[in-house]
Design a protein around this nucleic acid. Structure first.
Lengths: 167, 167
DNA sequence: ATTAATTTTCATTATTTTCTGAAAATATAA
DNA sequence: TTATATTTTCAGAAAATAATGAAAATTAAT
């Protein structure tokens, strides 16, 4: 396989994987493109490389910045804005985990907490309902902790080493 | 909040969360409904409770069975089919992890392996590309191991205990 | 201050995904 | 076997999501 071909396949596949994870295909593709771009690139470069409109590029770039995955960079003597993505994949993963925790896990825990405050806990079926809700809450908290461990493991060699024992 | 209200909110929210994770809203709702149903229920029950068509119910049930999240059960003396969901949330999580590993992580590792076979590894930019691809591959393998640990932790108290140290 | 380049917004359009409902297939009972 | 109940399929409809492109806003240069 040629390098350009491989790059193209990487971008396309990344987009397809993104879709499965509930992420907009184009957003994933832009991220992929930036990951394998050695130099910062402009919105026009992205438009041209992915054959998409200016508006589309602009909106998705804004989202990616919101996710903390890409950054604007100023290129000396250039008027246009340039963009780069952090190439450190561990940091990328950590950042995604942090954001998803904030955007999804936290709201979920809040919801489950609310659902536990039902009026008549003696009512038929209440026990089973509270059991399921309680269990999901417990599991969510476990996941929360585990993700924190992963985030810490990125900086802490000791934890990383201990985790390896179980592999 | 009344129990019925809480149940309804659980179903709706579960559907919304599902959407964020790339899962069909209705499928998530059906799963939620089955999680909080104390007895097995029929397709007609689901149609009625969620106000959706027979075809929709049937297709999503088939998917949920494919995910290993729900089961058909035979009710003595009844002609209709009944369905239940496993209420053990740890098992549910484990099952989802197993399936996603199979459906997403494995194909991803295969793709990355292919991308490493580019013809001219001396070409300009090839080094950086291979670095990113290699790093993602490494990370995916780590994730793979970690998920295996989680699956094991479901059965193995010792691993669960060690993981707790870091919380 | 005026002009030109660049970015952002957002109403409209296109695409993708999901849902419906009726017909076909299958299974059970009479 | 024939009739009836139940499940499955799938073409077309509806809904949800994403993309376009041109106008508006912003920014920088002259």
């Amino acid at each position: 396989m040629k390098l350009d071909e491989a790059k193209q396949q990487f971008i396309n596949s990344w987009g397809a994987f993104g879709t499965q994870w509930g992420i907009n295909r184009t957003m994933a593709q832009i991220h992929a493109l930036l990951l394998i771009s050695t130099e910062p690139i402009t919105q026009d470069d992205i438009m041209q490389q992915l054959s998409i409109s200016r508006g589309n590029v602009n909106m998705n770039i804004r989202d990616l910045i919101g996710w903390g995955l890409i950054d604007r960079v100023v290129v000396q003597g250039e008027r246009k804005e340039y963009f780069t993505a952090d190439k450190d994949i561990w940091k990328v993963a950590t950042q995604i985990i942090k954001e998803r925790k904030k955007r999804e896990l936290d709201p979920m825990l809040k919801l489950l907490g609310n659902l536990e405050n039902i009026e008549d806990k003696k009512e038929k079926g209440a026990k089973e309902f509270l059991q399921v809700v309680g269990d999901i809450k417990k599991l969510s908290k476990h996941a929360d902790s585990l993700l924190d461990i992963m985030i810490k493991a990125e900086e802490n060699k000791f934890i990383g080493a201990v985790l390896k024992i179980f592999k």
